[in-house]
Amino acid sequence: MNMQKQRTVLVTGAAGGMCRGINARLGAAGHMVLCADLSLEAAETAAGTVREAGGRAEAFAVDVTDHDSVAALADSVHDRVGEIDVLINAAGILDRKYLKDHDASSFERTIDINLVGPFRLIQRFAPDMVERAWGRIINISSIAGVTGYPYPSYAASKGGLSNLTRSLVIDMWGTGVTVNSICPGVVDTPMVIQEVRDQVPRKVPTEQIIDPDEIGGVALFLISDDAKNINGADILVDGGATRFFQLFDRQ
């Protein structure tokens, strides 16, 4: 890949399972990884893993549901590191509730973390990218946002995130900033329950669970100059599952 320049990358939800691969691939490529998570201790652990592998990393605390917390993160990043080049919105939750089990507060919490959270981060950090005429925004969506899902709050939040990605292309028109989504299928993280893992051989054409490192590889490509004309895309990393099957049987 044509990397050309090392970048400063802010990753939210950096202590999550999928971000193991994202952080590792970015750090190994020489990028500065700013690991942000709800818990500073968890963020420090994620940053420490990058450093142990020879990469550069810093840790930050942020609550993506809180406007003031996001503002404080931006100030802290600016004071300690400077401007960021890349924002990866990976913070998210999966609330395993069917429609009958939801109340308004539980639905709204998922939307706030998975959809409004990325919006807050983008609104805070994108203007600096626009001013410098270069930037990459990568939203970690899901195949649930493409096909639907039995858990309506998760599907709605990820569908909204993918559409936010497409819509922001208009705002970033001609600015040098691109906005894309990565839509993983079944990734080998603690979030994936055994029921789903058991269905992979018969519902995913490659018969494979995705390694977090693969998601990191896609993120690394999107940062490279080879991806400068990929914009507004939902990049499916799912083994072909969304083309032929649904990952869940009807309850």
Results as ranks from 00 to 15, higher is better:
Met1Ser: 14
Met3Tyr: 13
Gln6Tyr: 13
Thr8Ala: 12
Thr8Pro: 02
Leu10Val: 11
Leu10Asn: 10
Leu10Lys: 10
Gly13Met: 00
Gly17Val: 09
Met18His: 03
Ile22Pro: 01
Asn23Met: 07
Leu26Gln: 06
Ala28Arg: 12
Ala28Gly: 10
Ala46Tyr: 02
Arg51Gln: 15
Gly54Val: 09
Gly55His: 03
Ala59Gly: 07
Thr65Pro: 00
Ala72Lys: 10
Leu73Val: 09
Asp75Leu: 11
Val77Trp: 05
Val77His: 07
Gly82Val: 01
Glu83Asn: 12
Asn89Met: 07
Lys100Gly: 11
Asp112Asn: 15
Leu115Asp: 02
Gly117Cys: 04
Arg120Thr: 06
Leu121Cys: 15
Ile122Gln: 05
Arg132Thr: 12
Arg132Pro: 01
Asn139Phe: 03
Ser141Pro: 00
Thr147Met: 13
Tyr151Asp: 12
Tyr151Gly: 12
Ala155Gln: 07
Ala155Gly: 15
Ala156Asn: 04
Lys158Leu: 04
Gly160Trp: 01
Asn163Lys: 14
Thr165Gly: 06
Arg166Phe: 07
Ser167Gly: 14
Leu168Asn: 03
Cys183Glu: 09
Cys183Ile: 04
Val187Lys: 00
Pro190Asn: 11
Met191Val: 15
Val192Arg: 06
Val196Thr: 14
Gln208Trp: 04
Ile215Cys: 05
Gly216Asp: 03
Gly216Val: 04
Phe221Lys: 05
Leu222Cys: 08
Asp225Val: 05
Asp225Ser: 14
Ile230Pro: 02
Asn231Arg: 05
Phe244Lys: 12
Phe245Lys: 11
Phe245Pro: 00
